[in-house]
Design a protein around this nucleic acid. Structure first.
Lengths: 145, 145
DNA sequence: CTGCAAGTTGAAGCGAGGTTCAACTCAAGG
DNA sequence: CCTTGAGTTGAACCTCGCTTCAACTTGCAG
């Protein structure tokens, strides 16, 4: 029992439901070989991919964007620590940005608590990203990116 | 043109689409009077409600929870600065919590960048909220609450 | 070789947070 | 009065990130 993980094992070890793993595969976020009987066998390096996906989600990145990022990994070989480090660094900057945004929100909120204003334009608070306008149909990302 | 805002005006001033405003009304988050011809007329204080809703969304609160919070406002009178301040204080704590979570994520990520590990259990990084398990059907909140 | 857990698929469904549409009605300036 | 832009409704649709289901097939311990 070296190398290959079944979907159940990957699910257990990553904490991600099997159905979610299959979904990720459909989206091209992870990959699996198949046994002669068509069952998925995951290389251990997929564990890192899954971890990366979940972390990126927490940073507020959509699965589509995560896919783009993962596509930058070398397909020919198992990604090295360095490969991962490069990606992590990129997300780190996003995280920092998000944190800054939250902190600004908090500080603005502090300023407003005194006056109870929440008066949109008068406050810096409202709409911190200057994203007043329309963006097309469908659901919106509730949280800032 | 004092007091009452049309839906178009509220949309323009709040930066929220008319369709979203009607949706919020269906959910009971905001209220409007009606003209004799059945058109909505919003009290100016609804501007603050809308602002509050958008801010709370940024903090990662669902519309349902926002509704619960807004229900705590006095229905009989226009909310005072103090009323709003109370709500804001409550959200501030949530915000702080979220910021802490993000910072922890960032610090953990920093630790991992060196080794490129992302190795789930070995790192503190993965799944910071200890929320490994199942939660029932439907979409999941992507970002920590 | 049997039995049972674990795996397979595609299609359908869910929940959140809206948008879009058609078919009207209202408000107000000229 | 007429026109035109703004507003009305309910129902249908959308995206995202999954889960659930039914109907099978595989893998493996005994």
């Amino acid at each position: 029992m070296h190398e290959a993980l079944t979907i159940g094992q990957l699910a257990a070890r990553s904490g991600v439901a099997q159905s979610a793993l299959r979904y990720y595969e459909r989206l091209g976020l992870i990959r699996a070989e198949r046994t002669s009987g068509n069952q998925r066998r995951y290389h251990r390096s997929e564990l890192r991919r899954v971890a990366f996906i979940r972390i990126a989600q927490q940073v507020g990145v959509s699965l589509e964007e995560i896919g783009d990022a993962l596509a930058a990994l070398p397909a020919s070989r198992t990604p090295t620590a360095e490969d991962w480090a490069r990606l992590s660094t990129a997300w780190r900057e996003r995280l920092d940005e998000r944190i800054r945004l939250m902190e600004r929100l908090r500080d603005d909120l502090d300023g407003c608590i005194g006056c109870g204003c929440l008066s949109l334009r008068r406050c810096t608070l409202y709409n911190p990203g200057d994203e007043l306008a329309v963006e097309g149909p469908g659901a919106r990302l509730t949280l800032p990116r």
